[in-house]
Design a protein around this nucleic acid. Structure first.
Length: 446
RNA sequence: GGUGGGGUUCCCGAGUGGUCAAAGGGAACAGACUGUAAAUCUGUCGGCGAAGCCUUCGGAGGUUCAAAUCCUCCCCCCACCA
């Protein structure tokens, strides 16, 4: 019994399914399609979308045919499920842009070549809809009495803000999507986060009422960190998949900083490493987990970006923090560099340094004018302009509290003058606190 | 449309003429301890090259030596009624 459902359970992708037995039987068929919707609310997906993306990727690996549905139509309406506030309505130009960005990211997870998967936009059918026919054909299958009891609306019905009529319709549109995909592609399975339960069940009902056929749903849990927060929300905002919004280096760092208690769970959800290997490291604890976190960070970066970026982020982190050899017996399937580090540094880094110049550097960096440096720049000013602190007052406080470092050495006073004598190999390395680095590259403007 | 209650710094939330850059909590940031983890303790937490100054309490005006606080108008949110 090594079917996809078991794998999903084992890796933590399932919180709930509709009609277990029938679903199991259905999944034994050939050519089963399944779909997940992604709303284009931003030009990039973020870490919160990883669970659906990974589950779709796993479906494909196991021979199913994924349909990624981008909500170009539903995005114009805005899903209120589980949200405490009304979404800002987006206009169609923005949504078009967002769709463009999201498509690229989904392609990192799903292979769309040769019809192995389908990418659709529900605007293709939703924007054609006519109101009265829609109400008569679809609307009459929905009971308002039932809808207002749905968990997904509950929060909003109880909240101060209330629920707007346009949002109330979201459920009908998503249900209609399911019906459309059933008709056109024979798709009977929809996956989604737990906040989608109401919408998915409504779609299943609609298929049953209108086509007298069974459709299924698999709900994945909302992943929270052990401290109870939603995945991917940091103080600086969401952790994005777009390298322009969250650099691969920051992305890698996000995973490295995973809480001890989350590491095993996250490996199962967010990497393709075999469960047998993950089970073996379950009993590791304490500092030993750091190697595991290194693997997690490397693999996660590898999936979303690519090997080159993952390596770059990896070696950059190693040189900034400490060199740590990932033992061979830990998660052996991972391609994380694990031989003698110093050998790796010398043989991999030089060739990559050249590329790093050409592409966007993964660590936050900026250029500084040589002439400016000759005159000397007060440390607090430099920290501010480098973006390591929000204002020069904040920079001053940072330095006064001993949290500012220049090339690894603590800066003693806020007005310490940084000059060209601090340049090392055409670079100056600034650090705020333990983890925030910024590289200043010296530029000769003559 | 009517009546009542509200809009305070990143969030929650006190403050009803000076002692208010505004209590308290949370978040965040730094330090110590560590393992780039968690917990804990300490400090910081509007801006400005110290003292001092400047800008903030939905918006615009006004009263006053002095306004988050009082007055006028406007905008927005909520509840109940219609």
């Amino acid at each position: 019994m090594n079917n996809i459902i078991n794998i999903f359970y084992e890796r933590g992708f399932i919180e709930n399914t509709t009609h277990d037995k029938e679903l199991n039987r259905y999944l034994e068929n050939e050519n089963v399609a399944c779909y997940i919707g992604f709303d284009p609310t931003a030009s990039s997906l973020h870490v919160g979308s990883l669970v659906p993306l990974m589950s779709l990727a796993y479906m494909q690996k196991h021979g199913y045919r994924p349909i990624a549905l981008i909500g170009g139509g539903t995005g114009l309406v805005g899903d209120p499920s589980g949200k405490t506030e009304t979404r800002q309505l987006l206009n169609s130009e923005i949504i078009e842009e967002n769709i463009y960005g999201i498509k690229k990211q989904i392609s990192r997870f799903i292979d769309f070549s040769e019809g192995k998967a389908i990418l659709l936009n529900n605007a293709d059918w939703l924007s054609q809809l006519e109101y009265i026919p829609f109400l008569r054909d679809i609307g009459r299958h929905f009971s308002v009495n039932r809808m207002i009891k749905a968990e997904s609306y509950k929060m909003r019905l109880e909240a101060e803000e209330g629920l707007n009529f346009i949002e109330f319709n979201y459920m009908l549109l998503q249900s209609y999507d399911f019906l459309k995909l059933f008709d056109k592609y024979g798709c009977r399975l929809q996956l989604g986060g737990s906040d989608q339960w109401g919408n998915i069940v409504a779609g299943i009902d609609l298929v049953r009422r209108m086509r007298h056929e069974t459709a299924f749903g698999i709900i994945s849990p909302l992943i929270t960190t052990s401290s109870g927060e939603k995945m991917g929300k940091t103080a600086k905002g969401a952790v994005w998949l777009d390298p322009k919004r969250t650099t691969p280096y920051e992305y890698y760092q996000y995973w490295i900083n995973t809480d001890d208690q989350d590491v095993v769970r996250f490996l199962a959800l967010f990497t393709f490493l075999p469960m047998v290997e993950i089970k073996k490291i379950e009993k590791l604890s304490g500092a030993d987990l750091n190697s595991v976190k290194t693997v997690l960070a490397f693999e996660a970066t590898l999936i979303v970006h690519d090997e080159k970026e993952a390596l770059k982020a990896h070696f950059e982190a190693q040189s900034m923090f400490s060199y740590r050899v990932v033992p061979k017996e830990i998660l052996p399937s991972s391609s994380v560099p694990r031989s003698d580090i110093s050998a790796n540094i010398t043989c991999v880094l030089p060739s990559m340094k050249v590329e790093a110049e050409a592409t966007v550097g993964s660590m936050p960096s900026s250029y500084i004018d040589e002439g400016q440096l000759k005159a000397g720049i007060p440390a607090f000013k430099l920290f501010h302009t480098a973006g390591l602190s929000g204002s020069s007052s904040a920079a001053r406080r940072l330095i006064e509290q001993g949290g500012a470092y220049l090339n690894g050495k603590r800066i003693k006073s806020f007005d310490f003058l940084i000059t060209d004598s601090d340049v090392d190999n055409m670079e100056i390395l600034l650090r705020a606190g333990k983890k925030h680095f910024h590289k200043l590259k010296v530029k000769n403007n003559n």
